[in-house]
Amino acid sequence: MGGTAEAADVNIYSSRQPALIQPLLDAFTKETGLTTATIFIEKGLEERVKAEGANSPADVILTVDIGRLDAAREAGILQPLENAVIAKDIPAAFRDKGNEWSGVTARARVVYASADRVGDEPITYESLADPKWKGKICIRSGQHQYNVALIAAFLAHHGEAKTKTWLEGLRDNLASAPQGGDRDQARNVAAGQCDIAIGNTYYVGLMRNNEKEPEQKEWAKAIKVVLPTFENGGTHVNISGMGLAKNAPNRDNAVKFMEFLTTDEAQRIYAEINHEYPLKPGVAQSESVKSFGELKPDTLSLTDIASHRAKASQLIDEVGFDKGPQS
Rank of each mutant, 00 (worst) to 15 (best):
E259K: 08
D9T: 06
A37C: 12
Y146T: 15
D130G: 10
A7P: 04
Q145A: 12
A197M: 09
Y146V: 14
A220L: 08
E74G: 13
D96C: 10
G76F: 00
F257A: 13
N11I: 14
G2C: 10
S141Q: 05
A72Y: 02
L295N: 01
L295E: 08
G2E: 15
A153T: 04
A115C: 09
A186G: 13
N188D: 15
N83V: 11
T35H: 07
A93M: 13
A113R: 07
E168R: 00
G320T: 00
V255W: 05
R183V: 14
A113M: 02
G241P: 12
V225S: 07
R251H: 03
P23G: 08
L261E: 12
K311I: 05
A312S: 10
D89M: 11
E100W: 02
I239D: 06
N147M: 08
G98W: 09
S301M: 04
A19V: 15
A254F: 07
H157N: 13
T163Y: 03
K256T: 14
E272V: 13
V118A: 06
C138T: 01
D120Y: 05
N209H: 02
I66R: 10
T4D: 15
L261T: 11
R187T: 10
A106W: 07
D298N: 06
R309M: 00
Q216A: 02
H157C: 08
D317W: 00
L174G: 07
G119V: 03
A58V: 09
R117A: 14
E42M: 04
W133E: 09
T4H: 12
R140D: 04
I77T: 01
A190S: 09
A129E: 03
D172A: 01
N247F: 12
D130A: 11
Y13G: 06
V10C: 07
K217A: 00
A8W: 13
D116Q: 14
A284T: 12
G293M: 03
A72H: 04
S15E: 01
V283F: 05
K134C: 10
S56A: 02
A254K: 08
N209E: 12
G98V: 00
G234I: 12
I39W: 01
T235G: 11
K224M: 08
L279I: 07
R171Y: 09
D130F: 02
V118R: 01
Q17L: 13
S176W: 06
D264V: 13
Q326P: 03
S286L: 03
I12M: 03
K164T: 04
K212G: 13
V226H: 15
I196F: 08
K311W: 00
I316N: 10
F28G: 12
T262W: 03
A186L: 13
D26L: 14
I41N: 06
I39G: 04
G2Q: 13
C138G: 08
V204T: 11
N83C: 03
D317I: 00
V255T: 04
